[in-house]
């Protein structure tokens, strides 16, 4: 049976390029997927907006829908002044969406199945929240951890809880995306592996349509998860940005 973990293996393209403090930097298929995603997104966005027509073409319509979809998400979760972060949220959404969907291609590699990538993106979001929150509100930003209208004694319990919940945000944000992608692809690979195993096991081969049907169903589910997780990431980013904009409870 094929190794379900093998698909997450990074493969170096060419020779390692250089070393930074003992860490070897090499161009991998992961980097290739990231740059390909950036190129595809940029080309689609630019081609769609090339004609600037009043009545949109299909592609322009798709891009406008994406734009309005993310803009509505930001407006509803972060408020109207949250629109200053719209480029960030849109970039995160489209980047994760395209990388997730690229992982669904046969023999594809899922960049977002690596915790370091999702952690870096989540860290970017939380750093944006903290830096913007401190710049815009100064020490008032820490009001985020102090629920108003609560008895001072209760604050002894509530403030640590708020701090822990704030710290757990980047962890949950990154692990949610990483774990969904990883688990889904492992499950797909295992069930697909069952088909080959059953076919090779003589009479048991008649059971092979079962895992095949399951694989088809799982593939559909994984496409849904790929889109949903990009949306969840964008929505949570907007909600966290709302805290940076309005730290008061």
């Amino acid at each position: 049976m094929a190794d379900p973990i093998h698909q997450f293996q990074l493969k170096t393209i060419g020779q390692p390029l250089f070393h930074i403090g003992g860490t070897e930097i090499a161009f991998t298929q992961s980097a290739l997927y990231m740059f390909a995603a950036v190129a595809v997104i940029t080309v689609v966005m630019l081609m769609a907006t090339l004609s600037r027509s009043m009545v949109p073409s299909r592609l322009q319509s798709v891009v406008e829908l994406l734009y309005n979809f993310v803009a509505d998400t930001v407006r509803s979760s972060a408020g109207h002044d949250g629109m200053k972060f719209f480029p960030l949220v849109f970039s995160l959404f489209i980047f994760i969406l395209v990388l997730n969907l690229a992982g669904m291609l046969p023999y594809g590699f899922t960049v977002t199945s690596h915790i370091i990538v999702t952690a870096a993106l989540a860290g970017l979001v939380i750093l944006t929240v903290i830096i913007y929150g401190l710049m815009a509100h100064g020490t008032h930003f820490f009001g985020l951890f102090v629920p108003s209208g609560v008895h001072p004694l209760m604050l002894l319990i509530l403030v640590p809880i708020e701090v822990i919940s704030f710290i757990s945000r980047p962890i949950s944000l990154s692990v949610r995306l990483f774990a969904n992608m990883l688990a889904g692809h492992i499950a797909l690979k295992i069930f697909a592996g069952f088909i080959a195993t059953l076919l090779a096991a003589g009479a048991w081969g008649i059971l092979s349509p079962l895992p095949l049907a399951l694989t088809v169903a799982l593939t559909a589910l994984e496409v849904l998860v790929a889109v949903l997780q990009a949306y969840v990431f964008a929505t949570l980013t907007s909600i966290y940005l709302h805290d940076a904009l309005h730290p008061g409870h």
Partner: peptide, 24 residues
Amino acid sequence: FGGQLLWLAIAFGALYVLMSKVAL
């Protein structure tokens, strides 16, 4: 991790600039 972070920073940085300055 180092390599992935570097490529991610370059790719996502490029995407952010392209989206925020040109496409959006």
